[in-house]
Design a protein around this nucleic acid. Structure first.
Length: 561
RNA sequence: CGGGGCGUAGCGCAGUUGGGAGCGCGCCUGUUUCGGGUACAGGAGGUCGAAGGUUCGAGUCCUUUCGCCCCGACCA
């Protein structure tokens, strides 16, 4: 491709509200353009990257025996009503009417459509198992689109669905996809973690997220610095560490703390470290109230509470429903209420708690002497420096972008939709399903998040829009120009993807653009070539420059990638 | 959904007490420069988000509305 022909209009100035590096670089380098909130045009450079990522994904999907299909983006409401998700999915579902006033929606995911398809065609265990996938546009009316194409309302997703006669087959299929996903993320060259995750609105039992480590991520994950343990912070476990303050127990004291509710406020006012405060959080679950106690420097993890207590629909208690105003609730004098405490509070001596009275806290409170929790359970959110539950190593907390998510759905969709098959013994059973997604467009941005410097993008070769950037410093010079043209033709002939900067621009402009675009290899043809037939070879990722006799360039190329 | 902010040229922005629509980038023309976003000169380009109102007069004040962005939406 010749730069003079490329649809490429780099921008110097960026809106100040562009936050993610990837978003900024994609706009700057003319890869995408915003159409409306959370809606983007993919321009030639961005689209080439997208296609390369698609190709990698497609190759791996085909390799595990999945077959590619294309399902509609426009769905009739009926299917969504059968599974109940017409209402459950909520405002994120784009709903519309056709000319006959029939309700439709734009597909945010395709379980309903694919299950209906499978129901129509599959009757026997002999037809199982199999896998179908598609790469297609999804629509989700996100409450807050953000970070360019990282969280947009219309995006490209690869979704794969697997269909099985029994659990064993599902497990086998799940494992195969898991491996294929590893291949994909490796091929794209990403730093990622695989974590056990919540299954969310898609549902099902087991699920793993493929999370790309990046500052602009919206997920928080915890992983061990010495073993392979990793999980979302909601799921992450930790070894509680009981640090005994080993102080003499002091008599309890009521202190006036007007309007001071937060740990920070109380801790500053009383000049006591947050770790000496015991937070009391009131929750409701299945109609009963429960008090949760954690150290002031920790946060309660409600998902953990649900899991450990085996209850659902846990919610925080509203101000009006408690005996004491929120912010002043404490464990002492809570009659008839179950108290669940994190084991780490056992070590707190002479702690501070709410007094169950507006504007008062209690000092020098001691567990065992002044109150006794009903049970001790590790109910707080994992945090930096926690000990790994598997090996005792230190946990690291990182932000990340969810780029892949795989689920064992079981019969969540096949059962309500009646997608059944006949077993060898003649029984009818719902088909067991798995579903597996990758945010394809999101991966473009995620890769940039991990591969950039102050001058621009640094593409891994596998997904770079072009592999080689030929930079003639002076296009009006006949010697430089004819050599560049010739080199360009030879490289293209050999199958390389090449950008030839044939613009009549100053060298500086071309160097800036070459760096911004992040093409892996740059070949500079300038004064050195005119004087002594030397051209420069440079890898975008490295600072070294190889000076190579012009006739050797092609042979030397592969060594520089 | 709650809170805050912003809509003025393709992009980024300024516009004071109500009276002339401006600056930078980009774009066009010319000269100049030529290995890290050259310099200079000239030029094209805007129903000031929209509707209504106040006023002799509105980018500016009032009302309504649309769009966009940020923060929060579990930790007392």
């Amino acid at each position: 491709m010749r730069m003079s022909q490329l649809f490429y209009y780099p921008q110097k100035e960026m809106p100040k509200d562009v936050e993610a590096i990837s978003h900024m670089l994609m706009l700057k380098s003319c890869m995408i353009e915003r159409v409306a909130s959370g809606i983007y045009n993919f321009l030639p450079l961005g689209f080439r990257v997208l296609k390369k990522i698609e190709d990698i994904i497609r190759r791996e999907m085909l390799a595990i025996g999945a077959q590619e299909v294309l399902l509609p983006a426009l769905h009739p409401s009926e299917l969504w009503k059968i599974t109940g998700r017409w209402d459950e999915y909520g405002e994120e579902l784009f709903k519309l009417k056709d000319r006959h006033d029939r309700m439709m929606c734009l597909g945010p995911t395709h379980e309903e459509i694919i299950t209906a398809l499978v129901k129509a065609k599959i009757n026997s265990y002999r037809q199982l198992p199999f896998m179908l996938f598609q790469i297609q546009t999804k629509f989700r009316d996100e409450p807050r689109p953000r970070f360019g194409i990282i969280r947009s309302r219309e995006f490209i997703m690869k979704d794969l669905y697997s269909f099985h006669a029994d659990e064993e087959s599902l497990n086998e299929g799940y494992y195969r996809v898991y491996q294929a996903y590893k291949n994909i993320f490796d091929a794209i060259g990403l730093d990622y973690k695989i974590v056990e995750a919540e299954s969310g609105p898609i549902g099902g039992d087991v699920s793993h997220e493929f999370v790309i480590i990046a500052e602009s991520g919206e997920d928080e994950i915890a992983y061990c610095s010495s073993c392979t343990y990793s999980a979302t912070t909601e799921k992450a476990e930790y070894k509680p560490v009981i640090v005994d303050d080993s102080e003499d127990l002091l008599p309890i004291e009521k202190v006036y703390t007007p309007g001071l509710k937060s740990v920070e406020e109380v801790s500053n006012y009383l000049n006591v470290p947050p770790s000496k405060l015991i937070k009391t959080i009131m929750i409701k679950a299945d109609g009963r109230s429960i008090a949760l106690l954690v150290r002031g420097d920790s946060e309660v993890n409600l998902k953990k509470v649900e899991e450990l207590l085996g209850i659902k629909n846990v919610s925080l208690v509203e101000d009006s429903e408690t005996s004491a105003p929120l912010g002043f609730v404490g464990p002492i004098g809570l009659e008839g209420i179950e108290i669940i405490a994190d084991p780490e509070i056992k070590g707190v001596k002479n702690g501070v708690v709410g007094a169950n009275e507006k504007d008062y806290h209690l000092k020098n409170v001691n567990i065992g002497r002044d109150f006794e929790p009903t049970r001790f359970l590790p109910i707080r959110r994992a945090k930096k420096g926690d000990l790994c539950p598997k090996c005792g190593g230190e946990l690291v907390i990182s932000k990340g972008i969810e780029a892949g998510h795989i689920f064992k759905l079981g019969t969540k969709y096949s059962e309500p939709m009646g997608a059944v098959f006949q077993t060898a013994t003649g029984q009818l059973k719902p088909i067991i399903m798995g579903c597996y997604g990758i945010g394809v467009s999101r991966l473009v941005a995620a890769s940039i998040e991990q591969n950039n410097d102050k001058n621009g993008i640094i593409w891994p070769r596998n997904i770079a829009p072009y592999e080689i950037y030929i930079l003639p410093t002076d296009w009006t010079n006949e010697t430089i120009r004819s050599f560049s043209e010739d080199l360009y033709n030879r490289l293209v002939q050999k199958g390389y993807e090449v950008l030839l900067d044939d613009r009549d621009e100053r060298a500086g402009v071309k160097f800036m653009d070459a760096d911004l675009l992040g093409i892996p290899i740059r070949i500079t043809i300038g004064n050195r070539f005119i004087r002594s037939g030397i051209v420069e070879l440079k890898n975008r990722r490295k600072t070294d420059v190889w000076e190579v006799p012009a006739e050797e360039i092609i042979d030397r190329l592969e060594g520089v990638f």
